[in-house]
Design a protein around this nucleic acid. Structure first.
Lengths: 224, 224, 224, 224
DNA sequence: TATGAATGAGGCTTCATTCAT
DNA sequence: CATGAATGAAGCCTCATTCAT
């Protein structure tokens, strides 16, 4: 991509921040308790699912009382947001590789991105599944996901448009639609494999996703 | 597609039957009541969502008593299955066009399939969203969806393999993975547009989906 | 009272209807259950007070389950209204005596009214105390009481104005204010005696209240 | 009233001391904190009512921590008593006028008393309403109010009896009952006007209350 | 078959009070 | 004295499911 700092593609589904809820200065003890609750919530959510988990399961896991939960959160929804927030770093910055421009082609960048994305997804599979679930249940999270998808869609759309202008990608495609479609494709692939456990071979997955992207956009194999 | 009766691609996400549950002979009156309940259930499910709807809302809508519900179904889950079953015809056979082989190219078949799929999805958007929701909530429905996805994935995988063998598609792709990925891509596109209301232009959608498919598989533009 | 059909005075504090809440046709069984709940509620309210009574105490007393409560009422407030409604006949029509006009004086009418009022209050002392309590707690009931007090106040104000015009009562008094003041006086007397248990002699109470009314208004002792 | 130092009438509803609770020497800082809590409590009680206010609202308003509250009080009830105590001066000694006996009639004394009472009530309307509320909720405060009412009732009863003996008031009335009734009348009038906001004209209120008292007791208009 | 009242387990939430720092 | 996090008992309320009529 030469002189641009925009990475060619970004595939992260991204998790979510939103509102830092009950944001208080927090004493050291408070911070510890809150963190314990968030960690416990992740464990319980992943074990029982969002719907089937009871608040008391979370507090039991965090070894605190029910009341304490409400010191830091005011609903299941809110802890869930906190869990996502706490996991964001891993999902949002999936070690986007800094490929040496001189040695990498567009294809290599795309492949590296896919690999990083799939790896992050695999690491957080349970959580991703949870997010899918909650997004289907709670309109707030659904909207959050949609917005985030849009942001990534637009970012990749710009990258695609850029390639098109430089004659390096199929000019007949609508950049935004193509972007949304291909992002969705990779997301679905990851969901099926890591969340549903379809269990395809990891490298083959990266390879297929990359080939389909490259083919779909008719990307010309030229050094990045 | 030559001598096979397998259509080139099938995109339907498919809805679901599963267990015919309380399948009794049913008197005329019984059949009427049952049908009323199924119809009412669809209305209420689409209005309130699977989780937020109460059984009494359904019976109220069907103008019958709570007890009657249990004459025909034994749980919410079961009515939902019945609703899906009743809607399957529209979703499963989305008017898959019987194109005249002599006049149609692969591309035209793919395009027609996409159009039919998107139209069906649009007609049943609320229900499809519901299905997505329930699949995320109830393992039974999740598994049902997965199986169905697999069936379609395999069917398309065979079509892709066939094209590859005839030198009409990129031979470097894993047919099954590619099939799953592309099916997922189209499904996601439909979900975003018709369920989430992303509101892209219909024909552009068909066109983009088709181009991406064709490009991705590097389908050689030859008459079907 | 001569040519007017307006009774000279009316002292009832009145209880309250408001909204018939969950008014359904009610089957015989339903009516029975509802009545049992209302009766149970009165018992428990009078025993424990409005605040200290739990819904489960009421359902236990009514020998039904918690859920059943919610079939008929949607809150403590609502049962309380129902209890009041059920008691209204006794409080609202405290046997207002039909004195023979030819034989009764204004004073006799006033005395009879006071006696009837105090008797009704004594019969329902616990409930009246409850009403006082709830009126202090819940703005809805407070307002209800205020409105009712106003209605009686105005009614008596008209009677007082009538007497003034006929030269039978102190013309220097504001009829409405005097009415409100004297109604309040009798109400407070009843509250202290029957609710708080100040335990004055019943006939002395009637006598004092009557004398104070008559004196206060300077009612001329003439046959009604 | 000649040779007695008992004022003719005293109308104050009186507020309350009771138990000096945690009466400690108190350092200067402690006194300040306690005062802040009492002041804060009054603000919050008046804003939210006794029942709906949380202790944390009070401590927040007083800009101190929850724990500090318990350094000075051991319950909500106790702060409330402290609030009343702090306000007593204004309510208990409503500037009872020292009229010059040579120039004032009984009527003027009564009128001045009523005026003073209503003014005090108006100044403390919110608090008086609160007291009414708490007296209905908490037996301790109810009893306190009753005792205080009795004290005033007896005091006025003595004044009435005195007048009766001197031939200056209706001898047919029971002094104590009449006293209780008339005190109650004025209290109720004040409650309706200043707490419930019935909004009658202030001077008319004083005038009506006075006329009713004088009439009711048949007080002979003679210089005090 | 239809009815709809009755059931009751169990989750959610509040807030006065305690106590370690 | 002050702090404020932690506690946990206690009630409310929902709604899928049953069952007597």
């Amino acid at each position: 991509m030469g002189d641009t700092d925009t990475p060619l593609i970004e595939l992260e589904e991204g998790l979510s921040p939103e509102s830092p809820s009950k944001d208080k200065p927090l004493t050291a003890r408070g911070a510890r308790t809150r963190a314990a609750l968030v960690a416990a919530a992740r464990v319980i959510f992943e074990r029982d699912g969002y719907l089937d988990c009871r608040l008391t399961d979370i507090t039991a896991q965090a070894r605190c009382s029910t009341g304490t939960f409400y010191t830091y959160f005011s609903s299941k929804e809110e802890v869930f947001a906190a869990v996502l927030e706490a996991s964001q770093n891993d999902m949002l910055h999936p070690g986007m590789p800094r490929l040496d421009p001189g040695q990498s082609s567009h294809v290599e960048v795309i492949e590296a991105s896919h690999r990083a994305y799939f790896e992050a997804y695999r690491r957080n599979a349970k959580l991703m599944m949870l997010l899918e679930q909650v997004a289907m249940i709670d309109p707030k999270f659904r909207e959050m996901r949609r917005q985030r998808g849009k942001v990534f869609g637009e970012r990749n759309a710009r990258a695609i448009a850029d390639l098109q202008q430089r004659g390096l990608a199929d000019p007949n495609l609508d950049p935004y639609m193509a972007s949304m479609a291909l992002n969705g494709m990779v997301g679905r692939l990851a969901y099926h494999n890591f969340a549903l456990g379809d269990d395809m071979e990891f490298e083959a997955l990266v390879d297929t996703a990359t080939k389909l992207w490259v083919n779909a956009l008719k990307i010309v194999a030229t050094p990045s």
